[in-house]
Write a protein that binds this DNA or RNA. Structure first.
Lengths: 194, 194
DNA sequence: AAAGTTTTATAATGGTCAGTATAAAACCTA
DNA sequence: TAGGTTTTATACTGACCATTATAAAACTTT
């Protein structure tokens, strides 16, 4: 007998996530969230909670999205998958709507939220672990030496690329970095074959 | 016949710079600046101008500091200097007061200030160019191939390392990344000798 | 149509901040 | 010591923000 919820919670959360991604935590106001989601300020609070809680849920949604990317990229783990992944890192964005020149929402968060949001730390660390493990698994699958250290290097390289992208605001800014990463991956591959 | 300025403007600016470095732009208030510099809020405004202007001057001071580091690190340019530089990147901080686990003030700024401060862009780009040129010069001095692209890679790697450092809040977090960068530098070196 | 719930619009509350005003205190020079 | 300037402490202003309150409007079921 009640009026049903008009908006789709999943869609709204995704819109909120994109807003946080684009403008950061402090740079996002309730008003912006309301406009982006099409949901009233009060409605947002009722459904998702405080701003902190909305951000937390947005971060979770972001990680879920990233997990899908990882799963797809490393469906068949191995150095080939890694090479393909780093080649794509330097390529122009797929679509106009592509957010990839905004860098990574969670990496951005590390820089913005260092003074509060201790639970963000968990998000970021879990996120980093996800990438690290995906990279390490692929290196191991191809019997590459020193897989752990090299996976750490790849994570760092990816983050460096994200910094570049964020600075120049163009995904192609990461091309030289991605290229050298690919060269390095190939050299590890041939080192194993030798 | 006037009361002389009690504080040292250079010292005050350095204190302001460290405050911005540690807390970011938005995270720094007039009050914090006043406490850090020991100068009254009004005095700060009188001497340095608005918060934006203080930040701009702090960024200039930061770049001057970085320039001294670059000059010292690459006094005799060459691949050896680069190797030494990246080896140091993964080492624990020299002193307790070392700010190196705060990452780089200007890289942090890219992430925080994307929505305003257009003149920050110039600072960051000039800063990036400074590193890029120092790296490229050193690669050329040792007759390394593809110096430009590889210098871009090194800049990206350094920024990746700074992200790691900032995340884990420990300089040693960058050790694996720095190690692989050093390996890569050595491989470029031996490639030339072949 | 009636009852009951969820929306929305509007604005009030309490907090923080940048920037400015005011006046008292500190300090130099003559 | 007296005059004049700079500093400091204090607090005000106007703006913005997160969050909550209020009540009108929308809508669904019975």
């Amino acid at each position: 007998m009640a009026r049903p919820r008009k908006f789709d919670e999943g869609k709204a959360l995704e819109a909120a996530m994109l807003t946080f991604w684009r403008h950061g935590y402090d740079g996002t106001t309730y008003k912006m969230l309301s406009e982006a989601t099409g949901v009233d300020v009060k409605g947002l609070s009722n459904v998702f909670g405080s701003k902190d809680e909305i951000f937390d849920k947005a971060a979770t949604a972001y990680r879920a999205m990233a997990r899908r990317v990882v799963r797809q990229s490393f469906e068949t783990p191995g150095i080939e998958a890694l090479i393909a992944f780093f080649e794509r890192l330097g390529e122009p964005p797929a679509s106009e709507e592509d957010m990839s020149n905004m860098g990574c929402m969670l990496v951005n968060t590390i820089f913005e939220l260092h003074r509060f949001q201790p639970n963000m730390r968990e998000h970021v660390e879990a996120y980093r672990s996800m990438w690290l493990e995906a990279f390490e698994t692929s290196l191991n699958a191809s019997d590459i030496d020193k897989a752990r250290d090299r996976a750490e290097f790849l994570v760092g390289s990816m983050w460096g690329a994200l910094s570049e992208i964020r600075l120049v605001r163009s995904k192609t800014a990461a091309a030289p970095l991605a290229q050298v990463a690919v060269d390095t991956l190939r050299s590890w591959q041939s080192e194993r074959e030798a």
